[in-house]
Design a protein around this nucleic acid. Sequence first.
DNA 1: TCGTCCGGTTGATCTAAATCATAGCAGAGC
DNA 2: GCTCTGCTATGATTTAGATCAACCGGACGA
Lengths: 262, 262
Amino acid sequence: MRDRERAVTVNSGTFRTGQGQGALPRATRRELDKDNPCAACSVREMTVCAPLDEEEQRRLRAISSTLKLEPGRMVFEEGAPAEYVYNITSGAVSLSKSLADGRRQITGFLYPGDFLGLTHNVAYAYTAETLTHVCICRFPRKKFEEMLLALPQMEHRLLTIASNELATAQDQMLLLGRKTASERLASFLIGLIDRQAARGGAIDVIDLPMGRGEIADYLGLTIETVSRTFTKLKKAGAIALPDANSVHIIGADRLRDLASGG
Amino acid sequence: MRDRERAVTVNSGTFRTGQGQGALPRATRRELDKDNPCAACSVREMTVCAPLDEEEQRRLRAISSTLKLEPGRMVFEEGAPAEYVYNITSGAVSLSKSLADGRRQITGFLYPGDFLGLTHNVAYAYTAETLTHVCICRFPRKKFEEMLLALPQMEHRLLTIASNELATAQDQMLLLGRKTASERLASFLIGLIDRQAARGGAIDVIDLPMGRGEIADYLGLTIETVSRTFTKLKKAGAIALPDANSVHIIGADRLRDLASGG
DNA sequence: TCGTCCGGTTGATCTAAATCATAGCAGAGC
DNA sequence: GCTCTGCTATGATTTAGATCAACCGGACGA
């Protein structure tokens, strides 16, 4: 189909380019070193590695590689043998499933700290593609699962993550099955704002790492309807669009009402 | 809103009524006894209790109650404090989320062996309602989670379950976001058949424990569209409908093609 | 500097499914 | 037996969003 993983493997040492909205801050990057790159990892506290102590972290690091991927690259494809699990350290990734004729549904957008690739099948159930420049930790799945047996606190953490993802998936089913186009877009924007807020980010401005096509495939709409609905929300005074990839939230309450079917 | 849990608590001993499609076979019911009701449990091998030994099972049983619920009863409601987790031993249950104006999305149907109520929030994220007569094991969530800490193999099992549910949820998102009415209904029927097959059941006849309204709310359609689409599949010779709650699969291949967008 | 390309927007038209309306039919209760 | 009620089916009409078709504007390479 499309391009396969063509990343440079960066097992240690200084990161090189890493521009774009997902990059590590320059100061942090300096601190990365062979002995303990994870110590400087900006997403460690909120990801699977969080409950590990120094020694456990070292063991996990021993089986990991760090990849850097350009925008629009496939991390793995639906149906391919599930050989690795991944952890995003910077950038944004889309997960999607497709029908034979090309109709596509994006099931989620992942950001720094998110974990992907876990499955209890031989093959990946979905395709993962980069939306921006992405830095990602990769672990051979088999080794990762072996380690997991000895690290119940990490398994516990994974269960918490899976459980939250399940709740998000159910919200998305309500959206896809029952919401109107305006409600879908409002829910999407509110979801992004809430995620940012939870991570201490801005609560009134969103930088969209994805295009209209990806938003459409996430919301079960077409590009045209997404575009029209953005215009509608803009005309209603709920948002402003300085450019296609930035959204200013003006009427957060109005948007929130819309999102929950008001 | 509607009726709250009005079940008889049956902590041990012989089950009484238990008619309907979800009941335990009569022979099995006889074997239930105070000392080890779980030993005779027909769904034990495929549920969360599977990886437990005799002693662990006993400890789990010590915190459980068995409930019997009539059709159409609420097990718990979206937003209510999440005080219990449950395990279905017989019957069928729907999980749903609703918008303020009543629009409802059913996110899943649960059958014997299925586990529900797990959340990392204080409140349930969805409503659970019985579709048939249901027997269900109930565990106080707090105690259950405490036990979980000491039983990593059960936590592992829960992660496997959650991971499979996540995969199912993603399939459902593809269905809700991108499939036509015929494809949705075909996918639904194929899903039921595959589930039955995996449990050693029939591969050509389905008994539907839910009505057209529940199917509609699961597939993101209306009752009328579900009804019309059943008629369409019937006229196309893919299925037969001896009555509204039984489906005979005639063209399984045709149905499978349809389900995956052929 | 200009043309081309690509992503986004907007307008016109079409259609799958929703909505509205009615009718059949089986089981429950009398 | 008869009526009532709830569920299913089906016909007529409407509509939200899809599809088809320009068009616009910034980035980029020649």
